[in-house]
Computed example of a mutant assay.
Amino acid sequence: MHSALGGVSCFIFGPYHFMLLPCLAAKLIRLPQFDMDDQCFWSGSSSGAFSTFSSWNEIRRRNPKVPWFPLVWSKALQLRQFVFGWRLMHKKIPTDDIISHKGIPLVSKCNLCGLDVESFNHIFISCSFSVALWKQFMDCFGILWLDPSDLHQLSLWSIRKRRILSVKDPWSVGFVVVADNIWRERNERRHDGPSRSVSHVFEKIKCDVQDGKFNLQGMIK
């Protein structure tokens, strides 16, 4: 019997069977015997019940949360705004400078101010039209415009301000809503649509924020 077992182990494990068999034997445990039916428990959830959500959480690759997470992944935003916010923070918006970097030459001009070439930072941060919208939004919360160097700096500053505000959710969604309306106005003008004033676009921003179903009484003027 010993020789037969040795022959099988040699066939399965090769010349290392003398090392593997003791390790396998050490893994053998005695299972307790109870007078009850066996039950299956899924270790991927606290309840023990299997679900596709819990199985996905078990196998998916987890990356650390980015600092701008609360500004983009808010339940008050629409699905379209989720996607836009993600693209915005990853610089996946097709501004003229980003398109040019892909090897496509463009004659560029900002469609909002008409004073400078269009770049990612210009259209969302330094364009006079965009700055006017950011300032009006922040005036609603009694906060002065930061004049940031880029969108990443603005997002970090917005997160810090969020901690001290009593109305955190409207402030958070405003980051994406303002940028989204800036980009939509740019697209309207770029494709021969109507040109709206700063006050007109800001009214649309307020409507978008209020669509989040917050209690904004006395907060948005």
Rank of each mutant, 00 (worst) to 15 (best):
C110P: 01
L24H: 06
D147E: 09
L156F: 02
G6N: 14
G114Q: 13
S119F: 05
C140I: 10
S119D: 14
Q210K: 14
D139A: 15
S158G: 07
D180V: 02
H17P: 01
R162Y: 01
T52Y: 01
R184A: 08
S166E: 05
H2N: 10
E58G: 06
G6D: 12
N111I: 00
A25S: 09
S126C: 03
G114L: 09
H2Q: 09
F34N: 00
L165D: 00
F120W: 10
V107D: 10
G6P: 00
V201P: 10
E188G: 00
W42H: 07
H17S: 12
H90D: 00
V8P: 01
P94T: 10
M138A: 13
S54K: 08
L165V: 06
R189M: 08
Y16R: 15
W171V: 04
S3P: 01
G193P: 02
H17K: 11
P148M: 10
P194E: 06
G85K: 03
R60V: 08
L106M: 14
N187E: 05
W68F: 13
F84W: 08
N121S: 13
A4Y: 10
T95P: 09
D97H: 13
M36N: 04
K92D: 01
C113H: 05
W42I: 03
H200N: 05
H90S: 08
N121V: 12
D169N: 09
Q210L: 14
P148A: 09
K204R: 15
W145M: 12
G6I: 10
I59V: 15
F141S: 07
F69T: 08
S51E: 01
L165A: 01
D211A: 15
S195C: 14
Q81C: 06
P64I: 04
L77S: 05
S199Q: 14
S45Y: 02
C140W: 11
G212Y: 09
E118A: 11
S54M: 06
W134C: 00
S166C: 09
S199T: 15
P170I: 09
W56Y: 15
D116C: 12
S74C: 13
D35C: 12
K206F: 05
F34I: 10
